[in-house]
Computed example of a mutant assay.
Amino acid sequence: MVRRFLLAALGLATTLMSVDALAEGRADMPVDARAWLARVHEAASLRNYQGTQVFTAGGVVSSSRIAHYCDGSQQYERVDMLDGQMRRVFRHNDTVYTVWPQRQIAVVEQREPLPPFPALLQAGGDRLTEYYELMSQGSDRLAGYDAEVFLLKPRDALRFGQRLWAERSTGLLLRTDVLGAHGEVLESSAFSEVAIGVRAQPETVLQPMKKLEGYRVVRPAVTATQLEGEGWAMKQGVPGFRQISCVKRPLTAGLPDVGRNAGPAEVLQTIFSDGLTHVSLFIEPFDSQRHQRPMHTAVGATHTLMQRQGEWWITVVGDVPTSTLKQFAGALERRK
């Protein structure tokens, strides 16, 4: 699994010994990035914790209740959305259930999800320090815990920076801010309250996954493929980003408001990651009724670019500057 690969690649066993020395470091000084990043990743994967997360972006605030348990090699996670339409997410290892109780719909997928807060690293995290510099910015107190504060400063203009608050004794992320080019906060994820080291309760995840009587259970047919095999290619890569997956999936999978027969049957999705953030590129047949004009939107750090390319409609989305999305769109070409 990606988690095991990242821990090995970051040299966890040999670098954690130097972490405690950082507490005495001066703000804005370089730190042992591999040690702290490995510690943060380990805490999100292997610690038991539960709490309330608050997400702020574009003037909109939302909250969710998160519980994560690790029992030996088994991981369990439950996320309850506390605002808007009721939605719950249950995960046991790479099996993910997304449940809409009011609509009696459950979407079941087999995937290793891109890590949400408080996880940090993605596939390709072993090369993270090539594109970001980790700087210490002193200490703080958050959600009742002492925290070390770090800045992940991008080495180019293709990506956003992040400020991290890591709980001092465990490394669990308590808050992350995504920062714009001038240091402004574009979006923020933080625990308003959290308990670390709680007793594992896997039954609170497994039991709801089994109780779906009366639900319409959707199991999207996701097929692994290759961009080139589907007749596409990237003329050149975007520096720092590595392709980590390419699949064909039903366009409406996981969207309870869309009818079963709406839209084209499949969309091609390719995900690229630099180890900290990711960009998703979607390709679908052009439909004049739905695809009326090119668009660019931004909500917090998430930018979306949509445009026509011949008989196809291209959507590129990610927590990166618009110029980065344009590089991805410009590099994509049809080969057959």
Rank of each mutant, 00 (worst) to 15 (best):
E167A: 05
F160G: 10
G171I: 08
D146I: 00
F160C: 08
L134P: 05
V149G: 05
G171F: 12
M135I: 13
D156Y: 10
A147I: 00
D156T: 09
Y145G: 06
M135A: 09
G138C: 06
R168F: 04
A166R: 05
K153D: 11
G144S: 06
E148C: 11
R159N: 05
L134N: 02
E148D: 14
L151E: 01
A143I: 02
D146T: 03
L142H: 15
F150P: 04
W165V: 02
G161R: 11
F160R: 10
L164T: 10
L151Q: 00
L152E: 05
Y131C: 09
R159E: 03
W165K: 04
Q137E: 15
F150M: 09
L174F: 10
L173S: 09
L172E: 03
Q137G: 07
E133V: 04
W165E: 03
R159Y: 06
M135D: 03
S139Q: 14
T170P: 10
L158A: 12
G144Q: 02
L151M: 00
G171L: 11
L173H: 13
L152Y: 04
Y131K: 09
L164H: 07
Y131S: 14
L164V: 13
R175D: 07
A157T: 06
W165I: 07
R175I: 10
Y131V: 04
P154R: 01
L158G: 15
R163K: 15
D146C: 03
E148R: 15
D146S: 12
D140K: 02
L142Y: 08
R141Y: 09
L158P: 07
Y132C: 00
L164Q: 05
D140F: 04
R155H: 01
E148M: 14
L158N: 14
G171N: 07
E148A: 14
R141S: 14
D140R: 01
R175Y: 07
L151N: 00
G171K: 08
M135R: 15
A157C: 03
A166V: 03
A166G: 06
A166C: 11
A147W: 04
A157K: 10
R163V: 07
R159K: 10
S139F: 08
G171M: 08
G161Q: 11
S136G: 15
G144R: 04
L142M: 12
R168E: 10
P154E: 00
E148L: 15
L151I: 00
E167G: 01
Y131Q: 11
A143W: 06
P154L: 00
D146W: 04
F150H: 02
E167N: 04
Y131N: 14
L164C: 11
S139N: 13
E167H: 05
L158Y: 07
E167S: 03
S136L: 11
R155I: 01
G171P: 11
G161I: 12
G138V: 03
A166W: 04
L174T: 06
L158E: 05
A143Q: 06
D146E: 14
E148H: 14
E148I: 07
Y131A: 12
R168I: 02
E133I: 01
T170N: 02
L151C: 01
T170M: 10
D140Q: 05
Y132T: 00
R155M: 05
